[in-house]
Amino acid sequence: MRLVFAAFAAAVAVFAFAAPEPDPAAEEATEEIVLNIELDKSGVVSKRVLPMPPAAGKLFRRYLSLADWQCPLTIMKSEGKGRDFAWIVGRNESRSQLVFLTSNLTARPREIRYLLSSKESLTPVYRRVVSDNRGRTWRRFAFEPPHFNGIVCASTSQQGRIEVPPYTVQVVFVRLR
């Protein structure tokens, strides 16, 4: 009897380990961050620090350099220390390009909705370091999302919105015109 019970307990234990964990990300609602971006505001050159684990940081370094090279002036950033979620907005000297640097080390998806004081934005270019296993391993993933106005790519459909999925560190460039 003891043997049967042990076998049953072992089976339950195996089942418990094999059962997929519920994905908290699937349950969490997207948090929206709304930013009013004043393009005329002067920016500062400063060291940009975002929370991220070393493995992500190693992959992200080249994107950070790119952001510093292309859009060196910081014009806005999230308040507080932000251990698991933070953002920075930068621009270039000629105000023709914005960059959003974001770090989201939580299971909660976020979305930045921004309003520009002047100019219009073109489709964002995402350069992302992402984890598919809640931060255990990281990989690079860069893209422009689908955009189309029925004839050509120059669509405005994605303007003013930056996706910040769970477990991502990213730079997102947005050209302005």
Partner: peptide, 8 residues
């Protein structure tokens, strides 16, 4: 999706 040069 649009691929970006120099990226995977």
């Amino acid at each position: 999706y649009y691929s970006i040069p120099a990226e995977p």
